[in-house]
């Protein structure tokens, strides 16, 4: 397991990027790429992170990020990169 995709969706407000990045840093997940857009006040961000050197279990990272999302009224999902490439790349 090397890379995961973090998706963040919700109403735009101050500090989303900072706190999501902080969540990744706490788990020692290195951010490789970020793509972000705001449409009609809805904030959407997709992050590609390296999870090779996580300092906790992947399960824990998924749960922590979800909890962070709940606290900030955002939907945050962390999923292994393979699920996206298997669905969209032949």
């Amino acid at each position: 397991m090397t890379r995961a995709v973090v998706t963040v969706v919700g109403r735009d407000h101050v500090g989303i990027m900072a706190r999501v990045a902080e969540g990744c840093a706490q788990a020692n997940a290195n951010i490789i790429d970020i793509s972000q857009t705001v449409m009609n006040d809805i904030f959407t961000m997709v992050m590609l992170v390296n999870i090779q050197a996580l300092n906790c279990d992947f399960d824990q990272f998924v749960a922590d990020m979800k909890a962070l999302g709940d606290k900030m009224n955002l939907k945050i999902h962390v999923m292994h990169e393979d699920i996206f490439s298997s669905m969209h790349r032949v």
């Binding site: 995709v5 998706t7 969706v9 790429d33 793509s35 857009t37 959407t44 997709v46 590609l48 939907k75 999902h77 999923m79 990169e81 699920i83 996206f84 490439s85 669905m87 969209h88 790349r89």
Partner: peptide
């Protein structure tokens, strides 16, 4: 590299 629409499509399908 995957694009943001593909990623969101997958997430929407599941969620």
């Amino acid at each position: 590299m995957l694009n943001i629409n593909e990623i969101l499509e997958t997430v929407t399908m599941i969620q």
